[in-house]
Design a protein around this nucleic acid. Structure first.
Lengths: 336, 336
DNA sequence: TTGTATGCGTTATCAT
DNA sequence: ATGATAACGCATACAA
């Protein structure tokens, strides 16, 4: 073997034609060797694959995608790449998509250039676009729908033709939690919210208010948070300086962790004097320093639902929109 | 306008040819209208773009990528999509790549099917492959190098031709921290590690040991963690039951948070009786309940370095390998 | 400045 | 079972 053979210095990508030449077969044979269920002598298939391996050949997915089939590319528009819940969510989703042979292209929705980014990514013939939290500009959603790209929104229902939705039963979750706390003997309820723009916070608040109304009560106090620990801390400080509730329900776990820290710092006994609960059940909620009672917003099930809707939509592109509602569960730990 | 016109039901993607027909120009004119710096009457360009917008035309990136230029696709192999540091890292990286017009395809390296996933993604003519933490099987790295895909590894140096590296000065970080604690008067040092397989934990331990040696000391105790809060909690419990160090250095922040929780639970006064410090400076480190003194492993600078190496490599594909070492910084909060 | 013609690497169709 | 050939949608060298 010559030195030249030893180090091919192949700058250009190996093509099917090269493999065909090397193996002494036609280009089509090579293509078939990489297509499951194609007519090809099994012995020849093995030989071709062998040659391909030696040459380092991989079918070019770009060219294959041009053929009209699926591209296997899926975009994920992530509203907030900083929040613990969303990042965990995306982590799971990516894993599931990988297992399915779908390749997720991530778009950071919080960036200033998010709209441009979406438009650029739309140049790829995507199998689907998944919206996670945040909000994609309406016109872009419409554009996707117009192009005919299946869209699945998670966390914020989108009522547009061609968009499927996965959403957790926010109000049910906080309603159950509130009922539980009432049954436990709590009487004076407060809520720390997130800005109105966040659909889920409003829904969660509704659940609290409904449960209280049913018991002939109402919220005694309320403060604005922003879904972050710092926001929860500040809101908790403000709220607990001016009121003495015995139950504090927070828009999410981050907020609750912040509020819990504030309460402890102010000398409140949790859960003796006050119950503080969150929503989501992020990893940190079960960290021993918090041991937070919360409402589980199940990532597994939500991702399952997304995958399910994705498969269904790819199978039947013209099917009508669907909305899968994901059930929550109370997670009773140490702060109630 | 007829009903038919109203709802075009366009299943097929709009192509440049359709736009050309609609605008009464040639196919190439349309192409030029979307290519910056191409010769085209500016008036005509505007008209073509207008028609394209109405029809919902986007150049097909798959077909464009086939042309031999860049695909603008970049794969990110993520070793651990659960750890707070890695997810934050990936979040930043995705944002930066988006801003550059590069589209990141995520591969979950912790999945069982990671190898298959990498091979499948390699079918796309990637502009680059970025390794974040974890470890990609060596043969796959070699395969990428052979194909000629630029690779950049972050968090774990890869010594293979064609692979650039970004790595934080782990040993420097813990050495500075140890020196600082020694100067502060701490005398009995302990370390909670991660499994040997993790390059960074070993490096960080080395820094501690070196600084101690220079002061004529050595580690009085050591326990095995696993880079998680739970692991840190357990290791902390074991360590503090059998020893009475006055400084506990942990392999990362998650470990430190776990150990800190354990220490408080056992009644230790932090920082009076013991200093507990971490590494990374994840978001949670500055949460008020922890207020953790730690070594910053700067995500911004690491991502900057990756982008820099990426640009340089794309500019000069044949350049020799580079390794950018990222400086750490002590972050002095409340646990020292 | 513009249109025509060719090539990119693959899969699908059609013969054989 | 296999090989030749036609799409796929675009960019670009070339001709006008």
């Amino acid at each position: 073997m010559s030195d030249f053979d030893e180090k091919p210095e192949q700058k250009k990508r190996v093509t099917a034609q090269m493999v065909a030449d090397a193996a002494g077969v036609s280009r089509s044979a090579v293509s078939r060797a990489f297509t499951d269920g194609a007519y090809l002598d099994s012995e020849k298939r093995v030989r071709i694959r062998q040659v391909a391996l030696e040459l380092g050949y991989q079918p070019n997915a770009l060219a294959a995608g041009l053929q009209g089939g699926r591209s296997h590319l899926v975009a994920i528009f992530v509203g907030n790449m900083r929040s613990p819940y969303d990042t965990a969510f995306v982590g799971h989703l990516v894993g599931r998509l990988n297992a399915l042979g779908k390749w997720p292209i991530l778009i950071d929705g919080s960036g200033a250039q998010a709209s441009t980014a979406v438009e650029d990514v739309l140049r790829y013939p995507l199998d689907a676009m998944i919206l996670r939290g945040g909000s994609m500009p309406e016109d872009l959603v419409l554009q996707c729908a117009k192009i005919g790209i299946p869209m699945i929104s998670s966390g914020r229902p989108v009522d547009i033709d061609g968009v499927d939705n996965v959403c957790c039963r926010n109000a049910d979750g906080t309603r159950s939690m509130t009922e539980f706390l009432i049954a436990q003997g709590r009487k004076k309820f407060a809520y720390i919210s997130a800005p109105r723009a966040y659909y889920s916070s409003t829904q969660r608040r509704n659940g609290v208010v409904q449960a209280l109304a049913q018991a002939g009560r109402e919220l005694m106090a309320e403060e604005d948070g922003d879904f972050t620990v710092d926001g929860g801390f500040d809101a908790g400080m403000r709220l607990l300086s001016n009121h003495r509730p015995d139950a504090l329900i927070c828009a999410n776990d981050a907020t609750a962790i912040g509020a819990l820290t504030a309460a402890k710092e102010m000398g409140w006994q949790v859960p003796d004097q006050i119950a503080i609960v969150g929503f989501d059940d992020i990893d940190m909620a079960r960290w021993p320093s918090f041991d937070l009672t919360t409402v589980m917003n199940p990532i597994d099930r939500s991702v399952d639902a997304i995958i399910e809707l994705l498969n269904r939509r790819l199978e039947t592109p013209e099917k009508s929109n669907e909305m899968i509602l994901v059930k929550t569960e109370l997670v009773l730990r140490g702060t109630h």
